Computed example of a mutant assay.
Amino acid sequence: MPIVEEEGSMSDPLGTDLRDKGAGRNACPPPPSFVRLTVNVEAETMRTLQWLAEANRLSLTDGIGRAVTLWEFLTERVARGDRIALINPGGTMQTLDMR
């Protein structure tokens, strides 16, 4: 299971939200809009991710974000009843099974 850790946590060890401690120059900034995610992947998956990120001049973070965005898009389209197809340069079509 992935471990999700909020970056820039604004709570003390007791869980008190420190953002409500006044306003002005002493106020805490809002937390960033990202989280740190630690996952275990197979070595081949990591090599592929590194290759894809490098080939597209992306950071690993941006590459993972792009993959998740594409996965979300395809999942939503299939859920609506759409089919996903690839058409090669010769015109042959291959339908992807996303189940």
Results as ranks from 00 to 15, higher is better:
4 V>R: 11
50 Q>A: 07
3 I>G: 06
19 R>L: 05
97 D>G: 04
10 M>I: 14
52 L>D: 00
5 E>Q: 12
14 L>P: 03
49 L>T: 00
62 D>W: 10
53 A>N: 02
7 E>R: 10
69 T>M: 14
26 N>G: 10
5 E>P: 01
84 I>W: 06
74 L>T: 04
5 E>N: 15
85 A>C: 07
79 A>P: 02
55 A>H: 08
33 S>M: 12
85 A>G: 02
36 R>D: 11
73 F>S: 05
64 I>K: 01
73 F>G: 02
6 E>H: 05
89 P>A: 03
18 L>M: 15
80 R>A: 12
12 D>E: 04
69 T>I: 06
17 D>W: 03
76 E>P: 00
80 R>V: 01
53 A>S: 14
72 E>Y: 13
29 P>S: 10
23 A>D: 10
89 P>Y: 04
60 L>I: 15
13 P>L: 06
79 A>N: 08
33 S>C: 09
95 T>G: 06
79 A>M: 04
63 G>L: 00
58 L>W: 04
40 N>C: 08
2 P>D: 11
61 T>V: 06
74 L>S: 00
90 G>I: 09
38 T>M: 13
24 G>A: 05
40 N>P: 01
40 N>T: 11
99 R>H: 15
46 M>D: 11
27 A>V: 03
33 S>Y: 05
7 E>D: 12
53 A>K: 03
